[in-house]
Write a protein that binds this DNA or RNA. Structure first.
Lengths: 265, 265
DNA sequence: CAGTGGTCTAGACCACACT
DNA sequence: GTGTGGTCTAGACCACTGC
């Protein structure tokens, strides 16, 4: 199968090869899944950067020595996972948080009246940005060892002058070496876009755990609410390619004039 | 195109027909989307009931006079929307909330330690079930007129003996005529499964609005927490086919040993 | 106009479930 | 074995973008 000039690794298998290969746990994976994996590796390796055009379906089909339809199915799945953006007539682009369309993709807080657009962008105020040794709980979530370097960032988001979110962001020190409060406040646009352009880290998916909690003294003052006021606690873990955790974010949201909106399918 | 014996409506169009039809707003819709619409209509009309097998791809291809691939793409989309369940070697089934796999599909509350399965099913206790005239706010959400008949149902869900959710469920009186507390408590299994089998109403998607609120006296007593305790307020609107709202559910969740889990893509 | 992704077809074969 | 959905191919044509 794999021949001269072929960038195909020898590990690509066909269904029939698999069937004859082993009687136990065939672990059959369709061709398009393998192609998807190869494209994924190129994305991860940075062969094409966020926002860039990837090769056309025909080119990829030639490169991998499969039909266009097979490449298409692979790219379709990557598109469904928001790793890639297809645009008819133009090509397929590596997805990015910088695009107007998908900015603040992970922020589910919306105003009770009107929509996010009419409200305008949040005013951001950084409280601090420190380099620390990772506490045990943070280390566990970020797949680090306790004591490894991490960045801790605290900030407030305000909508139309009303402080609404206070959050604490933990990032692994290695990939984010050189991140400072100054660079952050200088940057216009979503933080996740900065992560892409400055540190080559693209957040691909995230998980959130929500709770109702009472405001502690510090948060109450920052959010200008009484101590004990119910706040929505949102703990988000964000992942890059390969399910590698890259951010832990603990936020407290005021929900008196906003709500957390979720679609269930 | 549409000929004798053909169940195809004359409204099916090809790309070229559309192109020549109108210079303004061609509103081109691919064939597979039209097929999807036709299958959807059959689902809505109850031609195949939840849990039942729908005709094979080949049969549908013959019925609609298109290729198997076109039907496949239509069914794929229906599957992605959880309207239909494909099972290799067996066929395609109308999705249902009664299946073990997807039970409590819309419930995002999970225990902090262990998983939902280890915790076991919730103990349900119905507080009341009344037929009322719809208040204005309820009517608006359910697309009814104020004063139309609605059912109001209040209940408590407890996990391992600890009351955790108190909720108020509003249903349109028409489709749910005959629903009583007795029928509900007699039914084992998810409420949405009962809605399917007894009333032919299948919930397809839902939207939730979350807030942190302070426990009022009544809820506090039911959930055995102090008045003022922060609780997670979850307001869910559920829809059947055609984006028709069919349920409004207002719940208060204790989040001291559970949390609301959300995946962001 | 050429190049891209999107649709549609027809046919072959594979994996899986039931009989 | 038969029938189902799932994969893969090859080719034709359509819709959209930009030159």
């Amino acid at each position: 199968m794999a021949t001269l000039l072929s960038p195909l690794p020898d590990t690509i298998t066909t269904a029939s090869e698999v069937a004859g290969a082993s009687a136990i746990a065939p672990a059959f994976s369709p061709l398009y899944q393998q192609i998807k994996g190869l494209i994924l590796q190129s994305l991860l390796a940075g062969e094409w950067k966020p926002g860039e055009l990837i090769p056309s379906e025909m080119e990829l089909a030639a490169r991998f020595r499969v039909s266009q339809g097979t490449v298409r199915k692979a790219i379709d799945e990557l598109g469904a996972e928001n790793l890639v953006m297809r645009r008819q007539g133009k090509g397929t682009f590596v997805a990015t948080h910088a695009e107007q369309q998908v900015q603040y993709r992970f922020l589910r807080l919306t105003p009770d009246h009107g929509d996010t657009r009419s409200e305008g962008p949040a005013e951001r105020q950084i409280i601090n940005c420190r380099r620390l040794r990772a506490p045990a709980d943070i280390a566990r979530v970020l797949a680090l060892r306790a004591g490894d370097a991490v960045l801790q960032l605290r900030r407030i988001l305000a909508f139309q002058g009303a402080p609404t979110i206070v959050e604490e962001i933990w990032l692994p020190g290695g990939p984010f070496k050189g991140l400072t409060a100054d660079r952050l406040s200088a940057y216009r646009g979503p933080m996740y876009a900065l992560f892409e352009t400055e540190f080559g880290v693209r957040m691909v998916r995230a998980e959130e755990k929500l709770r109702a909690v009472a405001a502690d003294a510090a948060s109450a003052e920052l959010l200008r609410v009484p101590v004990g006021e119910p706040l929505l606690s949102v703990e988000r873990t964000s992942y890059t390619y390969n399910d590698l955790p890259m951010e832990l974010r603990r936020g407290l949201y005021r929900t008196d004039s906003h709500h957390y909106k979720n679609k269930l399918n």
